[in-house]
Design a protein around this nucleic acid. Structure first.
Lengths: 216, 216
DNA sequence: ATAATTTTGTTAAAAAAATAACATTGTTAA
DNA sequence: TTAACAATGTTATTTTTTTAACAAAATTAT
């Protein structure tokens, strides 16, 4: 099967794990490790070795029996599968704490994804650069996004602005949105939307903590 | 089935959605809406009405035919299912941008979860309060967590400190950890661990953006 | 040289989750 | 009054995801 065909049939969860495998592998590479076993990857990610092998099977990678997987080769292959051939430019809308946290997460990481612009309504921030990322006004969004060929927008504004910002991003031509706002938004179906809600995650942890306590 | 028995059989995904339903319902309540249809909830969350009804069936809630669900009642019932009877205290380890972002998300929200302490290594932060949350030194973690009866820890430190902080939290007696660090950690099995990685989410969005562009 | 071991790759089965199908029942309208 | 409608509640089916089972092969040990 051609790489192009492989990609279309990868389970969503496998995509997520491949990204995580790669990150673990990059750390291994830095520490001078050349090969790694499926169960080593599994242990790092809290999953089973079978799952790792199955994922790698899906992307058509073959390890060496008894030596495991070649770290460098695997990193490259995962890149061929999940990365775009050219880099993708990303914008952050909302240069508050969360926006800046994300920028700091990314700077320094070698990646095909580049955060090239931030947007905010605070006049004190507009015109400055934060951790190397220039901050523009929200009203400049459409023009800047088009000029810089930005294709993904990360929303880190307060919930009340979520819907408005999502609409602006879509109008500007963005093809993917990552919404960290506590408010769900709607986008046309040619725009990929991923929403993550920190409160939900915390409430989920609290639920299982409670459950565990009650059964004790 | 007793509420206690219901809880044990709820799918993980249902737990997450219940938390989201409640948040949507609270907004409805504020806007004066007394009843809501399954398809209205579904639309907000980008899921199907069937899924909503199924989730509510699982927690044993019965709506009114033709009028939908009583917003207030449903909020209360979801609380009975997913919340602990008493509030749970939470700590944030790492008072950087991400830590402060989380605190701001939470303050003002009425909730059974309270962020009652923050920890950091920066001496400038220790001793201050940030958005109402007092900041302590990392070395005080164990004593503060015990004194304030903190049962959940949110990790927002740089990746290099992840493992160390997780160990400290476990030793201090925390029963749930939410890890926002890019590094996976290990905890004993009586501690519930949830890990979320922003880079993975962004790479996933990038993958589907790429996919969509290629097929066009 | 041969048997045991260990690890991969793949198919098969099980479990979890989402979707569909449909029965039920108030309400509205003819 | 009765038929059509629109909503819920539940069972059945399908899809997705995970886990298990096991064959194949390179290495190591005997």
């Amino acid at each position: 099967m051609k790489p192009n065909q492989i990609m279309k049939h990868l389970p969503h969860k496998t995509i997520e794990r491949l990204s995580q495998y790669r990150r673990a592998l990059l750390i291994c590479l830095d520490s001078g490790k050349t090969h790694i076993y499926s169960h080593e990857i599994a242990r790092i990610q809290h999953i089973t070795a079978v799952q790792v092998r199955r994922d790698l099977m899906l992307i058509g990678y073959t390890g060496t029996l008894r030596k495991g997987y070649n770290v460098k080769e695997l990193i490259d292959l995962i890149g061929q599968i999940i990365d775009a051939t050219e880099g993708i430019n990303v914008a952050i809308v909302g240069m508050g704490n969360l926006g800046r946290a994300l920028i700091n997460y990314f700077t320094g990481k070698r990646s095909h994804l580049s955060i090239v612009a931030g947007f905010d309504i605070n006049p004190d921030k507009i015109g400055n650069t934060m951790s190397g990322v220039p901050c523009f006004g929200i009203d400049e969004m459409e023009s800047v996004i088009k000029r810089l060929d930005i294709r993904i927008g990360i929303m880190t504004v307060p919930g009340d602005f979520a819907v408005e910002v999502a609409d602006k991003l879509v109008r500007a031509g963005v093809k993917g949105i990552l919404n960290y706002t506590p408010k769900p938004v709607n986008v046309p179906k040619d725009v990929y939307l991923e929403e993550y809600d920190m409160i939900t995650s915390l409430e989920k942890v609290a639920f299982y903590v409670k459950m565990h306590e009650e059964e004790a």
